[in-house]
Structures are given as C-alpha cells and as structure tokens.
Design a protein around this nucleic acid. Structure first.
Lengths: 165, 165
DNA sequence: GGAAAATACTTGAATGTTTAAGTAAACGCT
DNA sequence: AGCGTTTACTTAAACATTCAAGTATTTTCC
C-alpha cells in the first residue's frame, strides 16, 4: 500500500490551513451569488461580464478579450451574453474591420443596471472579505493570492495589469 | 442614478486584492480537479467524500455529517455517493438505532483507492499552494481564511476547534 | 487568384448541480 | 395510543456548464 517514494505529507497545521481554504473556495462564490441574485437578479459571472464592459473604452470589448477578463471559456461567455442581450443590457455587433470578431457593447440600460447593482455588491464584498480583515491582512492576502496564481497560471492578467469591479 | 447613501467604495489596492482573490477562486478548484481527474478519475468533490470517510471512526459517517464536512448540500452528496457506491468504494446502510439515518462506509477497495490517490493530490496542493508561500504566509492564510469564514458562516466546522486570530 | 489552414465565435449534446417535491422514520403532545 | 410536526434522506425536473462539432471569415502559401 505504501509507495516507494515517501511524499512530503501535510503537517497538521498545513492540513488545517488547507481545509479552511477549501471551505472558502466552496462558500464565498455561493455567498456572493446569493447576494447578487437576490438583490439584482444577476449571477456573479453575469455581473463580472457587465463590469468588464462598463470600464472598457466605449463600453465595448471583443468576446475573447472579455472571456479572458472573466476567467472563462468562449462557449460559456457566448451563452451568457445571449441572455444579457435578450434582457437588453448588451448589444452584439460584428467588427467592421474583421468579420470574425464579435464586439459586445453595454447599452444604456445595461449601464444603469450595473451602476445600480454595484454599490450593494461592493458592500457585500466588504462585509465578507475586507471588514473581517486588518489592513495588513488585506495586503498579505493580495501577495498570497498573486503567488498562488503565479503557480497556477503564470500568464494571468492579475499579475500585470489592473482592471474591474 | 446615484443612491442617497454613498457606499464605501473599494480603494484601488482593495480592488486589486479582490480581483486576485476572484481569479484564485475561479482557477484553483479547476486546477485541482484536473489533476485528480487525470491521475485518479475522481472529481475534487468525490475525493473530499472519500477523504472524509477515510479518517472517520470505523470509516463510517452519517450522510448529513459528511455533507457538512464536504461543504455541500444533501442532494449533491446523495448522488455522488450513489456513483461511488456503484464503483464499489462506498457502502450505504441504515442506522439500526434510527431508521432515518443513512450511514456511509468506505469499503476496502475505497480505502485502497484513496491511499493510492492521496500522495499525488497532496503533491499538487503543495506545489500550487504551499510551495509558493513562505511559512509565515501559510499561517497568515489560515488566519485570513478563518476570519472570512467567520463572516460567511459563523457556525462552520473549520472554526470549531481553536479560536481564530 | 485560389485552395488550405487558422482564427473567432456559435450551436448542440452530454454531464453535473441546484431547487423543489416526495418518502419514510422518529418525536411530541394530548 | 394516535395525530401532527420535525428530521433525514432520496428522487425528479429545471438549469447551467463543459466538451465537441459546426459555421463563417480572414490569412497564408503556392
């Protein structure tokens, strides 16, 4: 049953940290979703899409760029944008200079939606994440997150530029 | 368009921390799933269920207890345990002293499976989470995670034993 | 200039998850 | 003892996500 190579097992302290991190990964997205769905009828992912458009030049962005921003694949984004388009918050058009490219644009209604939704969501993020932490811990969390992202995906956006909420 | 109450907006530093955290929450579970699925044919959730049973007395635990451990609801657990039962790794039985309670037990095959799978998974957790961090950062991550969990779900198991910093 | 390859996105089928209703056993109150 | 409530879990249906194939446009290379 034992393998030839002895793995470096987790210490009991590491195991405790690990289980805590797993719990946060499971529950924080759920809690955020619940707030947005209840107060605005949006999923967290839909919110990220609208937020990504709201801060782009001319409130417009190509699909694959937006997918990278939202840390998702193209098929998922495509379906979500279809839903948002039906609700009148996003408009799709073909790039005149390259017919393969689809541009997503935030409509005025979409702008109004996101500006109405953002304050409540920011308040939720604050109460769940930043309020329980000291300023020093917030900074540490940033460093820690970036190091972990460096191990998962060294080419990720959150290590170079800045963007949204 | 502006609300009467001015929300405490996120500072640019907080925004950066927040986006980093969102990225970790999106990608770390995916990365873990990929390792387990490729090396062992298990999802991360299935692994957690087997792990939860493996460390219980008599390798047996009641369903709702197991659901709490795995941070999931009962319906999800029920279906996953059905799958694990079909694969021969778990056995279900009714508690003789209370007919409402279902007990899940890890079979010998299940024990073998988890002991074969654990070293590779621990190595992945190490390389993605603990290796990029200093010892001090690991400890900080534990404190930070416990504080956030305290805000999300004050009654969670991972806060039960010791008082969080 | 035209076939082949590459790019950007969409659509459809398979899978898994969440929500809601359903079943069964135990408890509490008369 | 008996009826109603609560608890614990399962099943069924609606929903979302991932994966694979499909369509349309542009670029590349004879």
């Amino acid at each position: 049953m034992e393998r030839a190579e002895e793995p470096r097992w987790l210490s009991s302290e590491e195991r405790d940290v690990w289980l805590t991190l797993v719990a946060v990964m499971m529950k924080l997205p759920t809690a955020l979703d619940a707030q947005l769905r209840q107060d605005a009828g949006l999923s967290h992912f839909e919110y990220m899409v609208l937020a990504g458009l709201s801060e782009a030049p001319a409130r417009t962005r190509r699909m694959s760029d937006l997918a990278g921003f939202a840390e998702s694949g193209l098929p998922r984004l495509s379906q979500v944008v279809s839903r948002l388009e039906k609700r009148g918050w996003v408009h799709r058009s073909t790039d005149p200079s390259d017919g393969r490219i689809t541009l997503a644009t935030l409509t005025d209604e979409g702008w109004e939606k996101i500006t109405q939704t953002a304050p409540g969501h920011v308040a939720a993020v604050r109460s769940l994440v930043f309020d329980p932490l000291t300023k020093a811990q917030s900074r540490q969390l940033g460093s820690i997150g970036k190091r972990i992202m460096g191990a998962i995906d060294p080419g990720d956006r959150c290590l170079g530029q800045n963007a949204p909420l």
